[in-house]
């Protein structure tokens, strides 16, 4: 295991099992307390899904306007000025609830391919927003009232729809254990999930097992 990987694992282990734990041996870390809470974790997860309804729903309307599918008679700026504040407002709640969920099980998420893919698509979706605001929107004055905006705007909107859909798909697949460290699975998945460094170790499709030395060294 290289030094970076060892540092990441040590940090995740500290975050999940040590951070916030008092001197009592029976004490819980903040992460364990959140996951084991009577109702708070469930409320957090429910909030993440419900706020997604407003967040993704409003993004979809703006993207469909840019694609020339809906609100064709309305200026693009009218739709984006009216709808995007709601998107930003809901995104704040999506991020807060999502961070809370990640904090409750950081080791599990780090070794889950769907979560890693979700983060990748999320980063690409955010990059797409930056590109749209930096480049495509610079010329918006000339096409703001067009029923069908120019190709660059439509490409950006299509990319946005696809990327946010992929974020939702990967997010929904996280709880399913189709790919899980310790189970026999393709080498690529084992590599992406860094199973060799996980508590459950790695097993490839030929049945060969590799157990992490790090977890064996844990007290």
């Amino acid at each position: 295991m290289n030094g970076l990987q060892a540092s990441i694992n040590a940090f995740l282990n500290w975050l999940e099992h040590v951070f916030g734990k008092g001197p009592s041996p029976d004490g819980q870390s903040f992460s364990e307390a959140l996951l084991g809470s009577l109702n708070f974790w469930s409320l957090l997860e429910g909030t993440h899904l419900i706020v997604l309804m407003l967040f993704a729903g409003t993004i979809m309307v703006v993207d469909l306007r840019l694609l020339g599918v809906t609100f064709r008679k309305t200026r693009v700026s009218v739709i984006s000025d009216a709808v995007l504040p709601l998107t930003v407002y809901s995104f704040i709640f999506v991020v807060i609830s999502g961070t809370g969920l990640l904090f409750a099980k950081p080791i599990f998420y780090y070794h889950t391919v769907w979560f890693l893919a979700k983060m990748l698509f999320l980063a690409l979706a955010l990059l797409n927003i930056v590109v749209f605001h930096g480049r495509v929107q610079a010329t918006q004055g000339s096409w703001d009232a067009d029923e069908t905006p120019p190709r660059a705007a439509r490409m950006s909107a299509a990319a946005s729809l696809i990327l946010w859909t992929l974020v939702i798909i990967c997010g929904r697949f996280i709880p399913y254990d189709v790919y899980q460290c310790g189970k026999a699975q393709p080498d690529f998945i084992n590599w992406v999930q860094q199973c060799k460094t996980s508590e459950k170790g790695e097993e490839n499709m030929a049945g060969q097992r590799f157990d992490s030395q790090m977890w064996k060294e844990q007290p």
Partner: peptide, 27 residues
């Protein structure tokens, strides 16, 4: 199921917010 919920939820929220005087008020 979730994507359908997002479509119906997002669009009904926008339509009803308009009736409440918020959202796409220029239309």
């Amino acid at each position: 199921h979730i994507i359908s919920l997002i479509i119906i939820g997002g669009t009904t929220i926008l339509m009803n917010l308009r009736l409440l005087g918020a959202g796409v008020t220029q239309e």
